[in-house]
Nucleic acid binder design. Structure first.
Length: 466
DNA sequence: TTTTGAGTTGTTCGA
DNA sequence: GTCGAACAACTCAAA
């Protein structure tokens, strides 16, 4: 351990003690480390912020505080402009350095640059397994196609083994802190208890068993075939490197080709996360405009009523409505459902993808600019993927394929609870006597579809052709 | 510099 | 019900 100096560990998207390069580096430089989280009004009041995500963050801060207290320390909480807060804290604590995990969003980069100009800030990697500058073509330029990016990822040495949580006790520095218990709590449904312990438990549980069937089950909205780790990765309660290692161990351990493919497929999804982080790092403009210049002039429809029906899960397309209601109720949505819901807004309603992107940011616990933007631009066909313009999801077919018995729909769209399987994805075809018998009259108990898919498909293909 | 192969996740239509 | 072709060209990555 270092000398008798004091360092600040500035916590942002790394709410964990294990595999934390910022913390470990700080402890290597100083004998006293002050763990600080700064409540930044610019972030907390942004139109891209979800109240439930903030509450998830606060719950995570409480968990981190409790973990730190077991080691003789505590989490210090301050509110305000990060540069000012850190300047004051350096003065009060006589700390000589600040360590933090680098981020890729434009706001974070600008903020960190501002701090680094004035204060002794050292940024460490960790938000992805490899820093974006390593994942470039030989000439240093970024990849814009996933497959070569993934090949590059695999060609690099596998990420270093995750660091253990420090086992030494930390000293408790004498500086003031806001009371962490004053943070607002989460209300309503909570399928995602926050904190590092829960995140690590979930990673282990998933990579021990469900990962084996991931390749087959991941698209099934009616099954819990995905890891549901995204909110935890969003705040670094589990690190990208820990996830990658768990995936690789599952690959090595796999005793049949299905299990191996499951683990490889999941690792591939982690690489997608890195891909979009790298894209945002190199092309920050994607947050405001289409990645593909030729698709910046699509004539979107202005349809507030359609948007509201979509957002509230009242489109009359069961799988779309189930998706949006799952999001509104839990702050999370199945990946396949995200594609279907997004495709419906963009392709069927012909509403600008940026409205959908913002709505997702306002409701997702895992909402984070790089992946959310990447996903929306992918759906809209405006992003890095050379998506054929004719790839328009049919919400009925998608429902039949990926929710074959309609159980996902029934779980979230309760008024369709008694609708027979054969009509669950197209309840408007249900004969009147069956509608009456199952207590679901279309247009009364459940909305008629707000747009005709066949017409909408032609309309969007025309709009994209320009 | 030129050439070549390939590009997450789809749907429809007609045989 | 299943299957293959068509749906357009275009850009990117790599040889």
């Amino acid at each position: 351990m270092g000398d008798l100096s004091t360092a600040i560990w500035w916590i942002r998207r790394d709410l964990r003690l294990s595999d934390n390069q910022a913390l470990t580096t700080a402890m290597g430089h100083a004998s006293v480390v002050i763990p600080v989280f700064i409540l930044d009004p610019k972030l907390l009041n942004s139109p891209q912020t979800a109240q439930n995500r903030v509450a998830f963050l606060f719950e995570g801060l409480e968990a981190l505080d409790s973990d730190l207290r077991k080691r003789g320390s505590a989490l210090f909480l301050r509110k305000g402009n990060p540069l000012e807060v850190l300047s004051n804290l350096l003065r009060e604590s006589e700390a000589t350095s600040i360590f933090a995990q680098a981020d890729v969003s434009p706001y974070a980069r600008q903020r960190d640059e501002g701090v680094r100009r004035e204060l002794p800030l050292t940024l460490t990697p960790g938000i992805t397994t490899h820093s974006p500058e390593l994942l470039t073509k030989p000439d240093g330029s970024p990849y814009t196609v996933f497959t070569p990016f993934a090949r590059k990822w695999h060609s690099l040495p596998f990420p270093d083994k995750p660091l253990p949580a420090p086992d030494w006790r930390l000293e408790l520095p004498q500086v003031a802190s806001l009371n962490i218990l004053d943070l607002p709590r989460r209300m309503g449904m909570n399928n995602f208890p926050a904190g590092e312990a829960e995140a690590q438990r979930r990673l282990e549980a998933f990579t021990d068993s469900d990962i084996n069937h991931y390749a087959q089950a991941r698209d099934r909205m009616d099954l819990d075939g995905t890891s549901q780790l995204s909110p935890y990765m969003r705040f670094g309660m589990v690190s990208a490197r820990q996830a990658a290692w768990a995936a690789r161990e599952a690959v090595v351990r796999a005793n049949d080709s299905i299990a191996r493919m499951g683990a490889e497929t999941w690792l591939n999804e982690l690489i997608w996360r890195e891909f979009y982080a790298t894209i945002l790092d190199h092309f920050p403009a994607v947050l405001s405009t289409a990645f593909k210049p030729e698709l910046r002039s699509i004539h979107w429809r202005d349809d507030p009523a359609g948007f509201t029906a979509w957002a509230e899960g009242r489109t009359g397309y069961p799988v779309v409505d189930a998706a949006m209601r799952q999001l509104n109720a839990t702050g999370w949505m199945h990946n396949r459902a995200r594609m279907i819901a997004a495709s419906f807004l963009v392709k069927d309603l012909l509403i600008d993808w940026r409205f959908g992107e913002r709505y997702f940011m306002q409701h997702l616990l895992d909402g984070e600019p790089a992946s959310n933007n990447g996903g929306w631009q992918w759906t809209a066909g405006t992003g890095t993927d050379s998506a054929p313009y004719f790839r328009v999801f049919n919400p009925v077919l998608q429902g039949k394929k990926f929710d074959p018995h309609g159980n996902y729909v029934r779980r979230w769209v309760t008024e369709l609870g008694n609708v027979p399987d054969e009509y669950i994805h197209m309840p408007w075809l249900m004969p009147g006597d069956i509608q009456a018998r199952v207590g679901c009259v279309i247009g009364k108990n459940y909305p008629s579809s707000i747009v005709d898919h066949v017409m909408a498909r032609k309309r969007v293909l025309e709009a994209y052709r320009r």
